[in-house]
Design a protein around this nucleic acid. Structure first.
Length: 823
RNA sequence: GCGAGAGUGGCGGAAUUGGCAGACGCACCAGACUUAGGAUCUGGCACCUCACGGUAUAGGAGUUCAAGUCUCCUCUCUCGCACCA
């Protein structure tokens, strides 16, 4: 590696040094402020893609910069290694998911190392390692003991292609989040995590995460879906048991004219009178066969069936027919809705279809609604009417009054309702963490005793791809004895959702080798929370909500003090090419390996940081990559061209500098200031890089001007190298060394700019007439306002624009602009 | 429908606090070196105009000495939510 820039040689050299010297290994060090930097760990699918390159390049700039700023940076990497693709690949290739996974990890680790990222590889973990998942089983048992893990039979989302259950969060537009197959409903006995216990805190803390993008917080708030309202009991005719509804519009209760129940409502059949029974049964059957997705689509036609039973409006006493309605959902509220057709659009449409009575109880100001001519429900606030003692009140005020009234009457109570449902974690697949539970005919559900952990995932399984989970067909795994009574028992064969592993890996990174428990609390408390987390927005309500939940659970179980896992979150945009997301089917995939071979990792990193700010989508452009490569070559060449001249130069003597040299230094120190600000406060890597490019454009043509020139040029080039080092660390280290520096940049402090050097000696002042740019004048720094105004007015270009006009006003912005207002 | 964000040259993007719109890069054009150029270097490059100058930040109004930036209206796009009672 001599005069020509050869990225391959340079990169191999420095990667070997970082590896051998464990440059990025960190341990607890109380002398420095800690900085926990984390990018979302990859699924070992086989090879890294450009999304990874971008994600990890962003992280690496921050990591290297913070390190040079004096932080003790913990920057780990690992593998989200359980999951279905491994199992599917194993079925196809007649191999084993473990083999497939570990081979992929080996290949991808090598790829990531070739990018030169500053990871502490001693903290590497894979979630399919026994030493990882055993502790997760312990977490499960501790959650089970506290009632935070429980089993229930319910309708769950079933992906027929993956042959497994999906959590609500994992269904997107009615399809499986992984394979897009339409999801249907299946009644199964499944394990759940009681995330709803944490709904309130999860919601409340979204207001205490200023370092998160607002849109992620909004998505989480929507998902949690807190609403305030009332539960109201409606007495059922010929029954002692009332129907309880949840409503946020108790102000409309006087207008409730019928009742709608979810078809799955437990009382649906009981309420069907003999002459309506057949119809009701047929309707329930029909709805069960319709999947939830179609059912909840907004253009799905409202449909229902009369049960034959009636209830009474608790405040008016009016008789209300009880219907089953397809749009009422069992898993929201109580599964029963008081229908107020005049003030709810769904109820309105339903009432029109089945010819049910309409009664207006809220009047908008200035208009009187007539139920006979209404064409849609009036859902806004207004003045109460036909509502007894509440008439004349503002409907918003009446909400409170009616709630109090119902409560006093014993007919209802104020309540809060959440949309968030408990997290179903059972998966009918092999390649996951076994749920550590045993079923005994005598003792029931028995947790595996702690001393028997881990429940090891057996290796010698047959993968037929048919008939469900291989674990269930493996007698040696299933058959066991009950830890309580010693009788023959069966082992749980479901494994945990892979999102469980990613919900706490950031905690385990703090103590990956800890052998005595889930977490070494001291280490976890030292490093947590993650100061900067970086990843794709697609996890806004999946991983990011589960991880928050788990952090709180582990806190309450006494394993950490952290309330929230991630203090700052950066959601990077997608990598796009030719107007579309990179995908094999589109044929627009850029292969990181090919890129590294052709240009080197530094160029790949540089372009992915330069082409767009991190949170925006990045438009990949092969010619743009060439531009980044050119820039690096120009730096390489400039340093080598000046090498002999500057090699022995010391620091410049500031008193002897020529004006040109002072200007050069000013550019250098302004660039230091600019890059520092862009990295520190804004993560605007593209503009930071642009400013170094600008500096290079100034340095390149600079000519020898005095005996001080070599020193000035040396200072300039040293700083250029430092400033680009977080982006292109290999080239920077190499040039740094060639300039004669013995301490590597990884142990060099980030420079402060020289405050006196950045002060301008002359200022360019823009002169406007009536707000239009007419001239520019140069004034010495410190020239007084009056003098600047005078100079502007005396400028010959300005003269022609103010000739014969009256100067009404002259505005002067110090050192920037003069605006002469004439008329 | 509701909520959030965005709209700037041929393209990616800059403009941080209301103060020169288009930094930086790509593409393109011209020139130099060259047997050659898909290497390198120099210069040009928003639009209209020979020029003086005029017009331009989705469109329209407004505030201001001054608006890409602030206010109001309209349009378009992206994302999220969406029968949630």
């Amino acid at each position: 590696m001599e005069h020509k820039y050869s990225p391959k040689d340079v990169e191999q050299k420095w990667q070997a040094i970082w590896d051998e010297q464990k440059t990025f290994k960190v341990s607890v060090n109380k002398d420095k402020p800690k900085y926990y930097l984390l990018e979302m760990f990859p699924y070992p699918s086989g090879r890294i893609h450009m999304g990874h390159v971008r994600n990890y390049s962003i992280g690496d700039v921050i990591g290297r910069f913070k390190r040079m700023r004096g932080f003790n940076v913990m920057h780990p990497m690992g593998w989200d290694a359980f999951g279905m693709p491994a199992e599917n690949a194993a079925i196809q290739n007649k191999s084993h998911p473990a083999t497939w996974t570990y081979e992929n990890i080996a290949y991808m680790r090598n790829q990531i190392k070739k990018m030169g990222f500053s990871y502490d590889w001693d903290r590497e973990l894979a979630t399919c390692d026994i030493d990882y998942y055993r502790w997760e089983q312990k977490i499960f048992l501790e959650m089970f003991a506290k009632g935070l893990a429980y089993k229930k039979t319910s309708y769950v989302n079933w992906c027929p292609k993956c042959e497994t259950v999906l959590a609500n969060e994992q269904v997107e537009d009615g399809g499986c989040w992984r394979c897009d197959t339409d999801v249907n409903q299946k009644e199964l006995d499944q394990w759940f995590f009681r995330i709803t216990d944490y709904a309130e805190e999860l919601l409340e803390n979204t207001y205490k995460l200023p370092g998160w993008p607002e849109r992620v917080l909004v998505m989480q708030r929507n998902w949690i879906g807190k609403s305030f309202g009332c539960e109201i009991d409606f007495p059922v005719k010929n029954s002692a048991e009332p129907i309880r509804v949840f409503t946020t519009r108790q102000d409309t209760v006087f207008g409730a004219t019928f009742m709608s129940l979810a078809p799955e409502h437990p009382r649906a059949l009981e309420l069907a009178t003999p002459d309506h029974k057949d119809e009701v049964v047929a309707f329930i059957d029909k709805i069960r066969k319709t999947d939830r997705i179609k059912r909840t689509a907004d253009d799905f036609e409202k449909e229902g069936v009369f049960t034959g039973s009636y209830c009474n409006n608790p405040v008016t006493g009016a008789l209300m027919p009880i219907f089953l309605a397809n749009f009422v959902l069992m898993d929201y509220g109580t599964g029963a809705v008081m229908a107020v057709p005049t003030h709810d659009q769904r109820d309105f449409e339903f009432a029109k279809k089945y010819d049910l009575p309409l009664k207006v109880v809220i009047q908008p100001s200035g208009v009187t609604l007539d139920p006979l001519v209404m064409s849609e429900a009036y859902t806004e606030a207004g003045i109460m009417a036909n509502s007894g003692q509440f008439d004349g009140l503002q409907s918003n005020d009446a909400k409170e009054a009616i709630a109090d009234f119902l409560q006093a009457q014993g007919q209802g109570a104020k309540t809060v309702n959440f949309r968030l449902r408990d997290w179903g974690i059972s998966r009918q697949r092999y390649w996951g963490n076994p749920i550590p539970v045993i079923y005994c005919d005598i003792c029931g559900v028995v947790p595996v005793p702690e001393q028997d952990l881990p429940v090891v995932l057996p290796k010698d399984v047959a993968f037929s791809g048919e008939g469900g989970s291989p674990l269930a067909q493996m007698e040696s795994f299933v058959s066991c004895t009950c830890p309580l009574c010693g009788m023959v028992a069966r082992r749980e064969t479901d494994t945990m959702d892979t999102f469980v592993q990613s919900s706490w890996y950031f905690l385990r990174y703090c103590c990956p080798d800890f052998k005595d428990g889930i977490l070494d609390r001291e280490s976890a408390d030292h490093w947590m929370s993650v100061d900067q987390y970086i990843g794709g927005i697609e996890h806004a309500v999946l991983h990011l909500l589960y991880a928050r939940f788990f952090t709180k659970v582990l806190r309450d179980l006494g394993h950490t003090s952290a309330d929230e896992p991630f203090t700052n979150l950066l959601t990077q945009g997608m990598v796009i090419k030719d107007g579309a997301k990179m995908s094999k089917s589109k044929g627009n995939v850029v292969d990181p390996d090919a890129l590294i071979t052709k240009y080197g990792a530094d160029t790949a990193r540089l372009f992915s940081l330069f082409a767009a700010p991190p949170e925006k989508d990045l438009d990949w452009n092969d010619q743009g990559v060439e531009g980044s490569f050119r820039f690096l070559n120009r730096i390489w060449k400039l340093v080598h061209d000046r090498l002999t001249m500057i090699q022995n130069a010391g620091l410049p003597d500031l008193d002897l500098l020529t004006a040109e040299e002072r200007n050069l230094r000013r550019s250098v120190h302004k660039t230091i200031r600019k890059v520092t600000e862009d990295l520190e406060e804004r993560f605007h890597f593209n503009t930071a890089i642009a400013s170094v490019m600008e500096l290079l454009n100034i340095l390149q043509p600079a000519e020898y001007s005095s005996a001080q020139f070599p020193a000035v040029m040396k200072e300039a080039l040293q700083n250029v190298i430092i400033l680009i080092s977080p982006f292109v660390p290999h080239m920077a280290e190499e040039l740094w060394q060639r300039l004669g520096n013995f301490t590597p940049l990884t142990q060099t402090a980030w420079p402060d700019y020289d405050q006196s050097a950045v002060i301008d000696e002359e200022l360019l002042v823009v002169v406007q007439v009536n707000g239009k740019l007419r001239s520019k004048i140069t004034v010495a720094a410190g020239t007084g306002e009056e003098e600047v105004k005078a100079l502007a007015l005396a400028d010959e270009k300005i003269a022609q624009f103010i000739l014969g006009m009256t100067v009404r006003k002259v505005i002067c912005v110090q050192g920037k602009l003069v605006n002469i207002v004439v008329g």
